[in-house]
């Protein structure tokens, strides 16, 4: 405890202030204006990168450079239906583990999502939103259906990471089973992007 006091505040000032540290290659690659790049997942069209497909590999780095913005998530019209405390359930549909680690990082003292009224639940029955990460593994189809059905209405479904959104480079998207209300790009999305998506989906500006 004394060590914690000596170390001082480690918690980010985000969202009041910009993020302190953003991993470059999880943000949107922007065309430098010359040169071409081949994308292993065909995420580039007319020099624009589709973040739903981008796997953050950086193979386009000769002609593209990341913009460093964490504002990457998009929501359909169903977003912004919660305004107070917000309980979320993490569902691993078939990840490499990295998305889970980044989502779980939101509970560490640096991000501390509880200061913003966001909490994890141990069961979907108590959740307002489900964060689905990973490709749609065959063995997780039924558990995902059950988990989403167990969520009380109103509810939000997040697709977190390139695998969940588009299947990435490994498999199928979760849209095979359920449509997502909010998509959070990145491979894996960095914790600031996930936090930003949660706040936006709650209606925070």
């Amino acid at each position: 405890m004394f060590r914690g006091l000596r170390k001082g505040r480690v918690t980010t000032k985000f969202p009041r202030k910009p993020p302190e540290s953003v991993p470059a290659w999880t943000t949107r690659p922007i065309w430098k204006g010359e040169g071409d790049a081949s994308c292993p997942v065909n995420a580039i069209e007319d020099h624009r990168v589709s973040m739903g497909r981008c796997i953050s590999c950086g193979y386009c780095s000769g002609a593209y450079e990341p913009d460093g913005s964490v504002d990457l998530s998009t929501a359909n019209g169903k977003g912004r239906i919660f305004s107070r405390s917000y309980h979320v359930y993490l569902f691993d549909a078939g990840t490499c583990g990295a998305c889970n680690l980044e989502i779980k990082a939101l509970t560490n003292p640096v991000y501390d999502m509880s200061r913003l009224g966001i909490f994890f639940t141990s069961t979907p029955k108590h959740a307002d939103a489900i964060l689905v990460s990973g490709v749609m593994a065959d063995g997780m189809r039924e558990p995902l259906r059950h988990a989403v059905e167990a969520l009380p209405e109103p509810r939000l479904v997040f697709a977190v990471g390139a695998c969940a959104i588009s299947g990435g480079i490994l498999g199928k998207a979760i849209s095979e089973v359920i449509d997502a209300d909010v998509i959070v790009p990145g491979c894996p999305p960095n914790p600031f992007t996930i936090l930003d998506a949660l706040l936006k989906s709650r209606g925070d500006s």
Binding site: S21, P23, W25, I55, S56, G58, P188
Partner: peptide, 11 residues
């Protein structure tokens, strides 16, 4: 992240 551009060394 600052030194390698990615928190999990992808790419």
């Amino acid at each position: 992240s600052a030194r390698f551009g990615h928190r999990y060394f992808f790419g």
